[in-house]
Measured scan of single mutants.
Amino acid sequence: MKVIFLKDVKGKGKKGEIKNVADGYANNFLFKQGLAIEATPANLKALE
């Protein structure tokens, strides 16, 4: 799953980066902790 990092995550990505991560990692950790959002077309456009 492609995500946009909202904060730096050690060993995974930095704020503003768009990366592929495992679905479970994104859903169970990144999204719940507010560290990333899904890289949907709307979210990508808002990032610009």
Rank of each mutant, 00 (worst) to 15 (best):
I18F: 03
N27H: 14
V21P: 00
L44E: 04
N43T: 09
K12I: 15
L44S: 05
V3I: 08
G16P: 00
L44N: 04
F29M: 07
V3N: 00
V9P: 01
K14E: 07
K32A: 13
K32W: 07
K2Q: 13
L47H: 11
A42F: 09
A36P: 00
T40C: 06
A36G: 04
V9G: 00
L6N: 03
K32N: 10
A26R: 04
F31Q: 04
F5S: 00
E48Y: 13
V3E: 00
G11L: 05
K19Q: 10
L35E: 03
N27L: 15
F5W: 02
A26K: 04
Y25S: 05
D23A: 15
T40N: 08
F31C: 04
K10G: 08
A46E: 12
K32L: 09
A26Q: 05
Y25H: 03
Q33A: 11
L35R: 00
L47W: 14
V3P: 00
L30H: 00
A39W: 10
V21N: 01
L6K: 03
F5G: 01
Y25Q: 05
E48V: 14
K14T: 09
G34T: 04
V9H: 04
E38C: 06
G24M: 11
F5L: 08
G24C: 11
N20W: 15
G16L: 04
K19L: 11
L6E: 01
F5N: 01
P41D: 14
L6I: 11
K2R: 14
F31L: 12
G24L: 13
L6T: 06
L47R: 05
K19E: 04
N20R: 13
Q33P: 01
T40H: 05
V21C: 10
F29E: 08
P41T: 10
F29D: 06
G11F: 07
V21E: 02
L6C: 08
K19I: 11
A36H: 01
N27W: 15
N20F: 15
F5C: 06
K7H: 12
G24S: 14
Y25K: 04
L35T: 03
G13P: 01
K15S: 07
I4F: 09
G34W: 06
K10N: 11
G16K: 01
A39H: 06
A22H: 13
A36F: 03
N43E: 05
E38V: 08
A26E: 07
E48T: 12
L44P: 01
V21K: 03
E48K: 11
E38W: 06
A39F: 10
